[in-house]
Structures are given as C-alpha cells and as structure tokens.
Design a protein around this nucleic acid. Structure first.
Length: 484
DNA sequence: CGAGGAGCGA
DNA sequence: ACGTCGCTCCTCGA
C-alpha cells in the first residue's frame, strides 16, 4: 500500500500559491519540514493547528469554513485513496493488444505511403514529413517550428489522407501509453486495485487534483474510451454508483450573478443551451441541433471569459460571427456582465477574488500595465469563483456523505471524485440507501452550508439572493462506463 | 532531468 | 493575444 502523505496543510489556504506547508513550518517553527520524521511532521502539523496567530489570520480573513472543510478533507481523501478502485487488469491488457495491433497496421500503412520509416511520436519528424518531404503548407506555428497538433492535422486531412492516419495513430498511442500501460502499472497485484493520490490544495481554484495515476482524466465516450472505462469495476458482490452534478458551473454562475434569465431557466427546468440558442437566434422559429451546439459552446465559453476570437476557433466560424454570439449572450444575460465587472473591480482593489464560501485566489495582474497579462488575469478572476464554488460545494457534500456513511454504518464506500462527480463502490443491498442519501445531500448542499455563505461575494443590489435548483444525475452499473 | 509538444478529463 | 483548471506521455537535447 502506498503511503498517504497528507502533510496536509501542505499548502495552507491562507497563503496558497505563495507558501507551502513546509515553508509554513519553517516560518512558524523554524524547522525544516522534510528533515522531520513522519511522527515529527504530524506533531509540527498539530502545532500549526494550535498556532494562535495563524488561527487569528484565518479568522480575520473569514476563512474558517474553508479551513475546516480542508481539514476534514484530509481523512476523507485518505480513506478514498486507501480503499482504491478495482480494475479488470486482464480486460485492460486485452484491449491494449487490440489497440497495438491497430497502431501497427496504421503505422505500416503510413510508412509505405510515405516511402520512409520515421517516429510517429515525434512532432518534429512529422513536421519534416508533412511540410518538407510532402510540401504541404504549414498552418500554424509554435515555439519551435510548425505545429502538427489536432487542429492542424484536421485541416490537412481534408486534402491528405496521411493526416487522418496520423490522427488515428495519435489517438491510439495516447490511449495505449497513458491508459493501458500507465494504468496497468498502477494496479496493485494482490488486490487488483488502483490507489490514486488526491491533492486538495493543489489548484488555484480549490478543485482537487489527482495524480499517480490521474483518475480524473479517464477517457469518456464511445469506442476504446468506453472500453477502458469499463475496466473500472466494483468489488465482488458490489456495484458502482456514479452521482454527478448537472451543469453545476452554469447554475453557480446563475447564483453568483443573480441573472434573472439564467435563474428562471433553471427554476423552470428548461434546457439552458436551448434557451441561450433562442437568445442567439431570435428570428428562428425552431432551434436546430447545430444552433444548440453553438449556444452550448457560448454558455461554457462565458464561464472561461471567452472572446470572440477564442470562440471562433472552437466553433470554426468567423471571429465576427462569434463576436456577435458573445455580444448577444451578454445583451440577454446582462447581469452576468455586471457581475463580472463588479467582481473584477473588487479584485483590482483587493488583489484577490473569492468563492461564495470565502476561498481566495490572489491575482495581482488585474492592474498590470501589460494588456495581455491583464486580460489573462481577468479571465482567471472571472472563472475562479464559479469553478471554486463548485469545488467548495462538492467538498462540503463529500463531508456530509462521509459522515452519513459512518453514522449508518454502511459497507459501501465513496471511492473517486472527478470535479462534479462522485463514484461509489457499494453492496447491491445498499443501492437504494446510497441513492437516497447521496442525492439528498448533493442536491440540498446549499441548505446544509447556508451559514457558511458569504453573501457579500454575490454583489447583491438590495435584494435577497435566489438559489437555483441543483440537480444530480445518478447511475448504477457493473462498471464505470455503465454506471455513467 | 527538464522543456516543449501533444492530448486526456471537468 | 486570442477560453479556465489539471496530469501524463513522448521526444530531444543538455
């Protein structure tokens, strides 16, 4: 079993990004953290916890709720890591064999067409083949030369079959190296389980991260991706249950901005992308699939502080057209734009932005003289409260769920977290119980943590905040693919 | 061993 | 200049 090092307060929230836990130990206790034994490290941790000036600082910054949830996450995540997830190693291997076979085939085909053997994993060699040997026109540059990324190859594929073949090879190579080989190496032989490591304070927004191996980027979708996901299985006699928040970030944007149209759409249980599509295409009687697709991209893009240019790239339309969509969005959901302006203005004054529960991200470049840096800082500022509040509530929900599992002495376990999704490995006879508990806690989490909400981060203009309904989709199955 | 390119997820 | 947050794989050159 892997050692679980939650030297937790590894990075104390108060200074995250600027000071890590070892540095904090040094500052507060004058000790070099890494030179301490694990017992001594734990002791140092206790001292930090009982350190008056630190607690004072947390209180002054109104970060008690964040401090408490982060403290509670330590044991919750440690438990999830320790339990791990069961994986069908044989199936993974057999999928791998299929993939390798296909790769070999594509590889041979490419080499024979080009009349040369080269390394398909080397962007530099692909550059040579495409742009020098075959004389294809390069489309995009990067630091070291001409780009051969997916976007470029997709364009070239319209006229040259080799680009399509390279894309196919790349896809398979990624799946094989990262997921077949990578995950196989991580399987504990005795138990057929994989034990990731979570970092609770490893991101600038408050999200978790997962590493060694990363179980937060397992492929989704059809084909081999689905095959790979189906290798994640429950323990004997159990089933997997997946609970994921539906459009959580857009709902949080509705809450933070208090935009009446967003709130109303969610309140009425409308299809939010369709609603946006009606705003973007006011003259259309009915909304086509493509129009809905565009609206969906716009909705997500707004959360990231998108520009017309950026949207044009992902949409594959002209910047002018994309700009019109962005403008139309802010025209209709006008409180979103006002909220962003309020947020950034306060961010400029404070040099940080906050989630609804007081988690902070320090951003200094909001007032930088460099326009590009300033724009980047603005996007970070805009995204953080949305992404961070979503992270906060899932952490709160995890705490409530862990508490309930313990109280009811349930045999099932929470085993994975993927930003808006929780995965459980549970006995079949606990299925109903888990479904009820998890849905109830996740959907009503704002009620549960009401007293921790900092309404000043809503920039309310007099009125009381309206909370959008929060919905959770729950699925159950004999593997991760089927439970989704 | 680290930088750069590329690609997987929310 | 060009949409946020992550992690891992590979190549290539120090």
């Amino acid at each position: 079993m892997k050692y679980i090092d939650y030297s937790i307060l590894q990075r104390l929230l108060v200074h995250r990004g600027k000071m890590d836990f070892p540095a904090l130990v040094y500052r507060e206790l004058g000790l070099v953290y890494s030179s301490l034994s694990s017992v001594e490290q734990a002791h140092a941790l206790e001292q930090i916890h009982s350190n008056g000036s630190l607690l004072e600082e947390i209180k002054e910054k109104e970060m008690q709720a964040i401090f408490e949830i982060e403290t509670d996450m330590i044991s919750i995540l440690a438990r999830m890591e320790e339990i791990g997830v069961r994986v069908d190693a044989k199936k993974l291997t057999s999928i791998g064999k299929e993939i390798v076979q296909k790769m070999t085939h594509i590889e041979a085909e490419i080499f024979s067409n080009v009349g040369e053997v080269f390394n398909l994993n080397s962007p530099k060699q692909i550059q040579y083949i495409l742009f020098e040997k075959l004389g294809i026109k390069p489309l995009k540059k990067n630091k070291t030369g001409y780009s051969v990324d997916t976007e470029v190859l997709e364009e070239i594929a319209k006229s040259h079959d080799i680009a399509r073949s390279i894309l196919e090879y790349r896809l398979l190579a990624k799946l094989n190296s990262t997921y077949i080989i990578g995950l196989s190496k991580a399987i504990q032989k005795e138990t057929s389980t994989i034990h990731t490591t979570y970092e609770s304070l490893g991101t600038s927004t408050g999200r978790l991260s997962s590493n060694d191996p990363n179980l937060q980027n397992i492929p989704t979708g059809d084909g081999y991706a689905e095959e790979i996901k189906s290798c994640f299985i429950p323990r004997k006699g159990n089933i997997l249950m997946v609970a994921d928040y539906s459009q959580i970030e857009l709902r949080i944007l509705a809450l933070l901005s208090q935009d009446p149209h967003l709130l109303e759409a969610f309140e009425n249980g409308e299809d939010i992308h369709e609603r946006t599509a009606r705003f973007l295409f006011p003259n259309e009687k009915t909304i086509s699939q493509d129009q809905r697709r565009i609206a969906k991209m716009v909705n997500f893009g707004v959360i990231y502080g998108i520009t017309g240019f950026g949207l044009a790239k992902t949409l594959g339309c002209s910047p002018w057209e994309a700009g019109r969509y962005v403008d139309a969005f802010y025209e209709k959901y006008s409180r979103v734009g006002e909220y962003y302006d309020d947020l950034v203005k306060k961010g400029e004054e404070d040099s940080y932005v906050s989630t609804l529960f007081g988690r902070r991200r320090y951003i200094s470049s909001l007032t930088d003289a460099n326009k590009t840096l300033r724009a980047a800082a603005r996007r970070e500022a805009i995204n953080m409260p949305v992404q961070g509040t979503a992270a906060d509530i899932l952490k709160f929900a995890m705490r409530e769920i862990a508490k309930e599992i313990k109280q009811q002495n349930l045999k099932g376990s929470m085993i994975l977290q993927v930003h808006d999704e929780l995965v459980f490995d549970i006995p079949k006879n606990e299925q109903e119980t888990f479904q009820e508990i998890v849905r109830d806690i996740m959907e009503h989490i704002f009620d549960t943590v009401k007293d921790k909400i900092q309404t000043q981060n809503l920039f309310l203009k007099g009125e009381k905040p309206q909370f959008p309904p929060i919905l959770v989709d729950i699925g159950v199955g004999e593997n991760w693919a089927k439970a989704k």
